[in-house]
Design a protein around this nucleic acid. Sequence first.
DNA 1: TCGTGGTTACAAAAAGGTGCGTAATTTACA
DNA 2: TGTAAATTACGCACCTTTTTGTAACCACGA
Lengths: 124, 124
Amino acid sequence: MKSLVSRCPIEEVMQILSGRWPTLLIYYLKQGTKRFSDLRRDNPTISHKMLTLELRKLEDAGIVERMEFQGYPLRVEYELTSAGHRLVPLIDALGEWWEATAEEGLQADTANGESAVAKVSRPD
Amino acid sequence: MKSLVSRCPIEEVMQILSGRWPTLLIYYLKQGTKRFSDLRRDNPTISHKMLTLELRKLEDAGIVERMEFQGYPLRVEYELTSAGHRLVPLIDALGEWWEATAEEGLQADTANGESAVAKVSRPD
DNA sequence: TCGTGGTTACAAAAAGGTGCGTAATTTACA
DNA sequence: TGTAAATTACGCACCTTTTTGTAACCACGA
């Protein structure tokens, strides 16, 4: 699933953050340490399997730390690493950008139609 | 496209930026106006289908503007909207965060509050 | 038996690739 | 003079690949 042989750091981050779950999980984890079952409650639509996969991915990326405590039943806690915490404001900024964009976008400059804007092509 | 009924702006942005192409296309488009065929040359591994789909998505999101010039053969140019330009530094910040993280991540740290509890690593 | 965190096998769904068709004009060529 | 080919930016149908969901199973002790 990962070669991560990309020369571009942006490609690499997006490989990690892409999809519905990563940013959502980070969102919940920034509230503090969470157990596996907490995260499932926070986000009831994620499947058991996806949650483990996504957490593993975030762990591998150094965003989340997994702590396993022996005991019965088994207890595992997840929390953001310091890198994970530094990521949070960047993600938030994207959300804010989107909100701002959505507002301005209400007066849709996308005056679509069959005939597009009359732009004249230069002779070439 | 999708319902986009998400209450969370972050979920919405990620829906747009997720995947290999959106940030890559934005990257090339920040260099200036590009034609469809330019973008294919910039990124030879994207299929024409994907390119149209992704461009349409970015257009719908208000990130890219599509300009169609009549003439034969048809000519279409794409460029970032002002919102698109404002997005660029946010994406760049993610890339920088990743680079910084990758460096420090070589010694996978735990700069968080240390619980004295034993931490057990997963078998694998 | 239940509950925790996790794995695996199989099935369904989504994403993506390939290749053909199309428009309106110009050029290529017999 | 007739016509076939090429051009650009796609849409569409079909098929493969990847991702995700479902469900069953595991360990352990209360």
